[in-house]
Each structure stands twice: as C-alpha cells, then as structure tokens.
Design a protein around this nucleic acid. Structure first.
Lengths: 235, 235
DNA sequence: GTGTATTGTGGACACCGTCCACAACGGCTA
DNA sequence: TAGCCGTTGTGGACGGTGTCCACAATACAC
C-alpha cells in the first residue's frame, strides 16, 4: 500500500542534492528530502494564510507522507513554524536588498545614506504588502523562539538575505551609513534602530490586519512614503 | 441587553446575577446571563494568552455549561472573539482616557494639545505593555470582522471608553486639538492620524512579540517616549 | 394551565497535534 | 555476500478542538 499516490505536486524543486539514483518505480518509503519538502509546503501554506495556516498534517499531506513522519525532522509543529519563519525573514531581507540594489549608483555619500534608509523601509513595506502571509509569519509570536535583532542571540544566517545580513542588520547598516555621512548624530544612533523599525512595522501591521486593512494600494504606498518621511525627519 | 461596562479586572460574582427567584438548589438549567459569563471568561482567557488562548470550550467550562450552550449566544468562536476584542478595545480606550485625565489641568492651548497627543500615545503603550494579551486581542486578525478606525464602518460604541470615543477617535481628537492650536498644519492632519498610530503601534508590536521582546520595562518606557518624540517631530 | 419559543444537554463528526510500537529501508561491517 | 543496526516512514491511538443535530428543560404568554 505504500505505492499509493505520488505527490501531486511536482514539488521536488531543484534539489541537486546528489541523492537520486533510486528506481522511482519502487516504494517511496524513503522520501529523499522530506525535511525540505515539509519546509516548502510550510512556506506555501504560510504564504497564503499566515502562521495559523501552517498545519502540520497538511504539510505532510502535501509531501505525500503520513503525519507522524514530520516528527523525524521537526520535534513539533512549533519547530516547523520556526523554520518557516526563518525562510520568511530571509525573503524579507531579500526584498530589502532588492530595493537597495536600485540605488546602488548614487555616489554622494549623504544622498546615498538617506536613500539607503528609504530603500530599506520601502523594501520592508513592499514585502509586507505583497507577501502578507509570509510577513505575518516572520513576526508571529512563537513561544520558545525569538526573532533576530534580539541582541541576546547571535544572528542566525538562515534569516539572512543574499548579502548575509538579516532585516535588522540591513537597517543597521543604513543607519551606520547615515552616521558616517553626518546625516544622523552618533548619539541618536542606538535608539534610531528601534524608532525607524517601529514606524515602518506599525504601518505594516495596521494595514495588514488592523484598521487600515483594505486600503487601496496606491494610498498604502503613499502612506508608506509619508511614514518614511516621518522617520527620517523625526529620528 | 449588556448592562454596564465590564471592568478590565476579573470576575464579577458568578451566579446571582440579578435573576434569582429560583431556588439555587434546583437545576441551573437556566444560567441567567450566559452571554455575559462567556464574554468575561473570554476576556480572562485573552488577558493571559492572547487571542489564541480564547478557546470556546474552555470558556463554557468556566461558565459551568456544556460547550454547545455557547452557540445560543455566539454563532461561532469567531463571534466570541469579536466580542472579546470589542471589550479589549474599550479597555484600551479607557487606558488612554486615564492618561488624558492626568493632563486635564493644562490651560495653554498649544501646550495642552501637544500634551494630549503624548498622553494618548503613552496610554496606548502603557496598555500594550501592561495588558499584552488583551492588546494582542484588540488587533488580532479576525477573518470577517474589522477594527474600528476603519472609515467604511460606523464606530461601534462597544469599543469606546467612558468618553464614548474609541481609541482611534481619541487620537483624532488630540490631533484636532493640535490643528486648532496651530501646532499642526491642517494639510497634514489627515495622514497624521495614521502616521502617529503607526509609530506607536509598531513599537508595541516589536516589544510584545517581535525582536524587542524581553526588553526591561524602564528601557521600554524610554523608547516609548522617544517614539512619541519622533512622531511629534515628524508629523 | 397549556402551548411555544428560548436556552441548555447529549452525542456525534472531522480535524488537529502528538505519542507509541512496528516495519521498511540503506549503509556498515564481517 | 550476509547480516546487523540506525534512520526514516507507517499504523493506530489518545485527548483536544470547533461545530452540527436532535432532544429536553425551562420561562413566558395566552
């Protein structure tokens, strides 16, 4: 009965994990890379539906495997959630990096520093509005686990974008640039990290599931720029 | 139907809710005010544990009633959640009003207007940090229901504080005062509503279950004032 | 006092996360 | 080549959840 259903998803996705080589006609008792498959299913679930949609049994279903199999790779649902969150944070970092790339050509240092701050904020908001589920996942309360930016823990590379920096660190580097450029007094630097994040994060939350939900995208974007103005001016 | 406002602190007397007349030794088939009891249980659950802790069966258990009984008063768990959220928003409004009361004596109009803005923000943050669970509940994503401040719906009095204003309206009145006092250009007034809220709300979220979780209260308070500074300056 | 709408009960269903014992497999060692 | 053994997936079960249905007890209106 093991031969039952093949996974409807073509879902193997890249891999290149050297494995393969087994005759696929035989039983799929050994999945190959179940952990990866579960993670990807989890990400997909989170994308549409946020954290509460990441249901362990559904993930295993999509991986074509019995529910308990998940426990060979994740000690609990929480653990799967934590892994999905790491991916979500990494995606967020990438969205911020993408925006940073667009301003890479600016040469004047202070212009550039300010542009970096704006880019970081814009990328953050873009991601929040385009990938609502993943964004919610990135900041879901997780019981035992913390979010990066927490000074008490070393940054986890799994949360980083291509530059190797996580979202919090990307913001930090923009602020550093502003200090270097003389656009931000060094004394204000430490708190600035949290102030800037607060403004942008708050807008994201209010739009996603707060009172501003359903605001037309053009208005949301405009509001986003206004918030960034406020941060820039108020730091 | 619902009598006076519920108090943020826990339980009123269980039975004997006005009804009486029946010998209490007899069966408690008729509960008296089950809806109220369920709501209060829900509030208590939300207080410690936030929205996800508001479990329908547990609420009925606390009310001393079988699970299905809840469905005579709430069409679903979501509906109970929505009611609890209304209470949470009302408590939030009261916390903001409490802070407003403290500055009621200021007479110079522009001083007063600015103080109102700060009071509103401070009350908001105080509540968020003192009543984490209820605050999370107030802004939980609820599927079919919206949060007040949404312009598409008339304000629900159930969300209001003693002044009859909900949190969003309290902020609005502070901003109106600032415009009247000449402390805020009228042109900036409309967006100001959302900018101010974003800053404060973002900090609350980051501290509650984001990267700033676990920050010592004194630092949190300091950060709160800094955020309010930023808002005041950046509006 | 009798009828009727309201409100709580009892039992069931599907779904969830999780635990346990067991079976299939792959790779190591002899 | 044969056998072992640790890893990984299976099967079945348990307690928990939200929700549906039919039914019983009650309060109230006539």
């Amino acid at each position: 009965m093991t031969g039952g259903k093949l996974s409807p998803k073509g879902g193997s996705g890249s891999k290149g994990t050297g494995r393969a080589g087994k005759s696929p006609t035989r039983s799929t008792y050994r999945h190959g890379d179940l952990r990866r498959a579960l993670l990807e299913a989890g990400i997909e679930l989170a994308r549409q539906g946020g954290p509460e949609a990441v249901v362990l049994r559904e993930a295993t279903r999509r991986a074509g495997v019995v529910p308990n199999a998940a426990y060979r790779h994740f000690s609990s649902r929480e653990a799967l959630l934590a892994a999905v969150r790491s991916s979500a944070l990494s995606f967020l970092a990438q969205a911020m990096e993408a925006e940073l790339d667009r301003i890479a050509t600016i040469s004047r240092v202070d212009d550039r520093a300010r542009a970096m701050l704006r880019a970081v904020g814009t990328g953050y908001l873009n991601f929040a509005f385009a990938e609502t589920g993943l964004f919610r996942m990135a900041f879901a309360p997780l019981e035992g686990v913390r979010t990066p930016g927490d000074a008490t823990e070393p940054p986890d590379p799994a949360n980083a974008g291509k530059s190797g920096l996580n979202p919090f660190q990307l913001l930090g580097s923009a602020l550093d640039a502003m200090v270097s450029a003389g656009a931000l007094p060094a004394a204000r630097r430490p708190a600035a990290e949290f102030l800037a994040w607060s403004g942008v994060h708050g807008l994201a939350m209010l739009v996603i599931d707060g009172p501003l939900r359903g605001l037309p995208p053009t208005q949301v974007d405009a509001l986003g720029q206004r918030v960034i103005d406020m941060v820039e001016k108020g730091l």
